[in-house]
Simulated scan of single mutants.
Amino acid sequence: MAVDYKALKDGGFMRQVQKNHFSMRLKVVGGNITASQLAVIAQISEKYGDGHVHLTSRQGVEIPFIRLEDVDTVKEELKKGGVDTGVCGPRVRTVTACQGSAICGSGCIDTYPLAVEISERYFGRELPHKFKFGVTGCMNNYLKAEGNDMGIKGGYGVKWIPEDCTLCGVCTKACRDGALTQTENEIVLDKDKCTNCGRCVKACPFNAWEGKSGYLVSFGGNFGNVIAKGQQFLPIIHDKETLFRVADAALAFFDRNGKSGERFRVSIERAGWDTFKREMEEAYHG
């Protein structure tokens, strides 16, 4: 019987150089795996693989040396243990995320629940080529948001509260972008220089800075054969409804304008960045 290698790859089974062996990609959202899932993965690796797993550069887990005749059995046993297989090919891939504000003191947004929402909405959706989302909690940018087709970075919209300020100067020292200037009577915020990093909010010992968390979105990043930094041109987004409206518009743009085998950034460049920006701004404004 002929083997449908394309279907196997689409389902996360990648052919190895060893004949009839596959490295099986698992679905890991936001880099989080439970202890019980880890136990199942270890058991499968020992029973059907060669006893080791591979951690990918995108927080993924792969179990190598799965034999062709064991594919269906492995999928079934994994599913019983609460572990799903991943995907390959021209579709939305696993969503990556750092630990975010739930754990990290630098975080401006709660990254994992957002990664789960993105995954539930888009994971596995077929497109002209692979499409990657990355969610990072702050300007430290551990997930390298701009390297993704659509990157989401946590930030703050900030507001100075003069009645609570002692003009101690801590916030101006914390700002790395030269966006804050201190006079005898006030702190002046240059909005053109502000990157929404929120360091002024986190550094102030008197709560004289108010921060409203939000999402800074970049488009068209690529770290494959061609390396390109995603572009951020929309203002900070403060609600998920707007964020998902923009994400919907970006994927719809790729669907309409992308050619088979063509990465998102190439599609944008061919259709024109001005056209793409106009559509994203329309989605942003609703």
Results as ranks from 00 to 15, higher is better:
S267T: 09
V53S: 01
V29M: 06
S106W: 12
S101Y: 13
A102D: 06
T172L: 08
F219A: 03
M139K: 07
H54I: 10
H129R: 03
P113M: 03
T242M: 03
V29C: 05
N32H: 10
I227V: 14
I152N: 02
M14F: 04
H52C: 04
L68Y: 14
D190N: 15
V188M: 07
K153H: 03
P162R: 11
G60T: 05
C108W: 11
F123G: 07
N207C: 01
G151D: 01
L78T: 00
D190H: 15
S45K: 01
V83K: 08
Y215M: 02
F206M: 05
K159I: 12
G51N: 03
E241C: 11
W160P: 00
L143C: 06
K153S: 07
K202Q: 12
F22M: 11
D190F: 13
D248P: 12
G49S: 00
R176I: 13
D164S: 12
H21A: 08
I152A: 03
L180Y: 10
G107A: 12
P235L: 10
R199N: 06
V61N: 05
R245E: 11
G51S: 09
E126V: 02
L68V: 11
K130S: 01
G230A: 05
G151F: 14
Q37R: 14
Y215N: 10
P235T: 12
K277H: 14
H21L: 01
K79F: 15
G198W: 04
H129A: 04
H238G: 13
Y156F: 08
D50T: 06
G49A: 04
T96L: 00
E69G: 06
K130M: 05
A247F: 15
Y142S: 09
